[in-house]
Design a protein around this nucleic acid. Sequence first.
DNA 1: CAAATATATACCAAATTAGTATGATATGAA
DNA 2: TTCATATCATACTAATTTGGTATATATTTG
Lengths: 148, 148
Amino acid sequence: MLSKKSKYAIKALVGLAKNHGNEVPLRIAQIAEQEHIPKKFLESILVELRNNGLVHSKMGAAGGYYLAKEPSDIFLSQIIRLSGGPIALLPCVSLNFYESCEECEGGEEQCALHDVMLEVREATVEILAKTSLSDLVEREDRLAKLLK
Amino acid sequence: MLSKKSKYAIKALVGLAKNHGNEVPLRIAQIAEQEHIPKKFLESILVELRNNGLVHSKMGAAGGYYLAKEPSDIFLSQIIRLSGGPIALLPCVSLNFYESCEECEGGEEQCALHDVMLEVREATVEILAKTSLSDLVEREDRLAKLLK
DNA sequence: CAAATATATACCAAATTAGTATGATATGAA
DNA sequence: TTCATATCATACTAATTTGGTATATATTTG
């Protein structure tokens, strides 16, 4: 499971992606309202995303947040990792949050579970690493049209 | 991420699968030692697995645990769900632990993120639902031989 | 300067996770 | 029948994570 933090981070970034190209940045309060995210919590999430180089911010009146890269260059896998969540189902198959299983005595090379979980991670990352913010925005448009 | 509980449940069941066919059940203490799982914690995990019909137990001296079904009929997806863990990355795409996103106003049919996460869940379940305890045991044998 | 904004720091409550403790109960063997 | 070996039931708990909130400060624009 992703944490709410990760989910909120994704939704906030999708919001920023929709605003991409506009001159004026989006205010925290706007994003919070649009995406129904608690404002103060969103604030801390955005600070983290900024520290990780995904967004930039502008202080003062008429300030706010905007993407630091093209929406087509920000991928779900990245967002999830930066907002604190491992993607893998076990620490011993995580690329970015690796930890060995102390209880696995034969070593990971002999662990069948490790093996299967590696497969799962690969299948998951395959999808998440090819889906960008602009893909999500497009997809949303397409879904909206289908339902009209 | 799976909880340790889920990981321990899988490992314990693999242990029981290896013992399958023997007359004598495995004692909690044996499983705990073999798989390096804290004994009292394992005890509570096994009780839950029994309540969910995956294992049977026998009380008293020479008692212990054994599988309630063939190892080829117990799948990772089942174990993970019964030991408390959703497989999906978001509640709104979970089959067994579904919850709607209150903040998703257009409804899930219009949510692009929902759509992607559905894909991820399907890819994950595809692997976990076809991997049985006997597959894991076989796989372990194969890995051991490769490394000899 | 005043208003609108982000920033920094610190705190906090609830839920979840990962167990432990204690004693009762059932079984088999001596 | 008694004793050692098991599971079973119930309750408790410590640590961590999650999901926030509060307060005060710094910066920019008009």
